[in-house]
Design a protein around this nucleic acid. Structure first.
Lengths: 173, 173
DNA sequence: TTGCTCCTCACGTCACGTGAGGTGGC
DNA sequence: TTGCTCCTCACGTCACGTGAGGTGGC
């Protein structure tokens, strides 16, 4: 890209001065958001009409896009330009990603409960016959058996979209 | 429809005589498969060229579609005609469904292991001090805590695709 | 006034479905 | 010969992106 203002393209995070950046706060007017996302402003309006993105509005109805909105736009851009999805596909995939996310959370929950359960039971066992504990399969062994990969608590699920082998769409002139 | 042989439109299953129907066996020529899937034969060839479906071939290179192929075609049909996905979207969604499936299997596995674990530990507890068992939170209570919904072992995951509000695509004339 | 916003309308391009046209073997 | 198969090519339609055109407020 060319003329963005230096800090774009980076994910939002805590600032050095310790202040919080609110990812969901509407801060960019449409022209800026479009620039950041590498899209035509009119495209953003179209996406909104299709329900793919819902920027905040100023009291005077000017659209205000958040960092999170811009991330979402970039994600949509990726799906359309690089994977060749149409907007119906984008909608579907975004929905599915949410489902993945819920499922992932459920798994993490399950794992956590299983661990708690074990701990409690081990405690009870210990209470029941303290010295016997060494003979029992230790906590760690059970835990590692509970699943192959650890489930990260924070990272959202992103489905890797296949790049098309065909010619990519033309970019905005 | 017109000239299919009576049993079309039904999902394959065990036959009354006890014989097995092999869902993956190539049995339908392209015209029949197209008829069953409600598609144009040429569309099937196109999908194959795009890698969306891979029918078997006879020694003379005639395509032979299985029941499973027809199901897949119907599924694709649903995604394109009713949800409005393009073929890139179909590809992506089918991939994602496979991922869902793996995740679901993993969860079932986890649940199973957690249950086994409990059982073992309860056994050990019982061994340790038999009569105390009544005081311990019983098996069933732990189990119901392990997750909201039961995970079915057999049913494959199908993502519900939203129907478009827009006009549906025209059917084959 | 300039440059942004808002909106609607229209057009070019591309993907996709399908028809046509020509071949070959049961 | 008829009706299927194979293939490639071409065209119509639709979705999508974007440009234009006209409005209004800082």
């Amino acid at each position: 890209m060319s003329n963005d203002s230096g800090n774009s393209g980076k994910t939002p995070r805590k600032r050095k001065d310790g202040g919080e950046l609110d990812e969901t706060r509407g801060v960019f007017m449409i022209s800026v958001a479009a620039e950041l996302a590498g899209m035509h402003p009119q495209t953003l309006r179209m996406y909104e009409a299709r329900g793919l993105i819902t920027p905040k509005r100023s009291p005077k109805q000017t659209r205000l896009y958040s960092q999170a909105d811009v991330e979402r736009l970039r994600r949509i851009q990726e799906m359309t330009t690089e994977a060749g999805l149409n907007l119906a596909g984008v909608e579907t995939v975004l929905d599915m990603e949410e489902q993945f996310e819920r499922m992932r959370a459920e798994m993490a929950q399950m794992r956590k409960r299983a661990e708690e359960m074990q701990r409690e039971m081990l405690e009870q066992l210990e209470q029941a016959r303290g010295s016997l504990r060494a003979e029992i399969v230790p906590y760690g062994a059970y835990n590692s058996e509970l699943g192959a990969r650890p489930v990260e608590a924070s990272e959202p699920v992103k489905i890797p979209i296949k790049r098309r082998t065909k010619s990519p769409k033309r970019k905005r002139g």
